[in-house]
């Protein structure tokens, strides 16, 4: 993944990993380069496909009481359409096509039991092509690492 990055880029990447909002000035000071160079390199690194520097917000502290890792099975050839429809729902945080018993693995977040029930009993079943929904509620999250993710072209 670091193919197009040189040594200096990688050093900058490591500093951004420690503090994503570190100023170009402080990075320049630490690496003994000019602020202009630091600034240019930072833009290059974070505008490319390699990584993003973003704020990650905590589900629970922002009021999402329910985290639901669900398996979805889909009729025949409708996988892509079903996946796109599910992806368009706000409550849905991730959608992955998988091989195995399930066709899709999705992760949803909801704020109340009513919202959860609505999602499970009304919204998802209304999507044409879904064969079955295997729901679960996450009771305790032990680990949630966010340093790698599939980044699209948004």
């Amino acid at each position: 993944m670091k193919n197009n990055l040189d040594n200096l880029d990688i050093q900058i990447l490591d500093l951004l990993e420690e503090d994503g909002r570190a100023s170009a000035k402080s990075i320049a000071l630490k690496l003994g380069i000019t602020e202009v160079t630091a600034s240019k390199r930072i833009s290059k690194i974070i505008k490319g496909d390699h990584c993003k520097v973003v704020a990650i917000a905590d589900f629970e502290k922002c009021g999402f009481e329910f985290l639901l890792p669900m398996g979805i099975r889909v009729h025949g050839k409708q996988l892509e359409q079903v996946a796109e429809k599910i992806s368009s729902l706000d409550a849905v945080y991730s959608v992955s096509a998988v091989s195995g018993i399930q066709d899709l693995e999705i992760l949803c977040a909801t704020k109340t039991l009513d919202e959860t029930v609505e999602l499970l009993d009304v919204t998802l079943p209304a999507i044409k092509g879904i064969k079955s929904i295997t729901p679960a509620i996450s009771s305790k999250v032990y680990k949630f690492q966010t340093d790698w993710a599939p980044l699209g072209n948004d």
């Binding site: 993003k52 973003v54 704020a55 990650i56 917000a57 905590d58 589900f59 629970e60 502290k61 985290l67 398996g71 996946a83 796109e84 599910i86 992806s87 849905v92 945080y93 991730s94 959608v95 992955s96 096509a97 998988v98 091989s99 195995g100 018993i101 399930q102 693995e105 977040a109 999250v141 032990y142 680990k143 949630f144 690492q145 966010t146 993710a149 599939p150 980044l151 699209g152």
Partner: peptide, 23 residues
């Protein structure tokens, strides 16, 4: 154990996570 292998990623909202300091 029941494992499903990831094939394609339709959505991943990286803006959300659980921030667990002990992890």
């Amino acid at each position: 154990t029941e494992s499903s292998i990831g094939l394609k990623y339709f959505k991943y909202d990286y803006k959300w996570g659980r921030l667990l300091s002990e992890a």
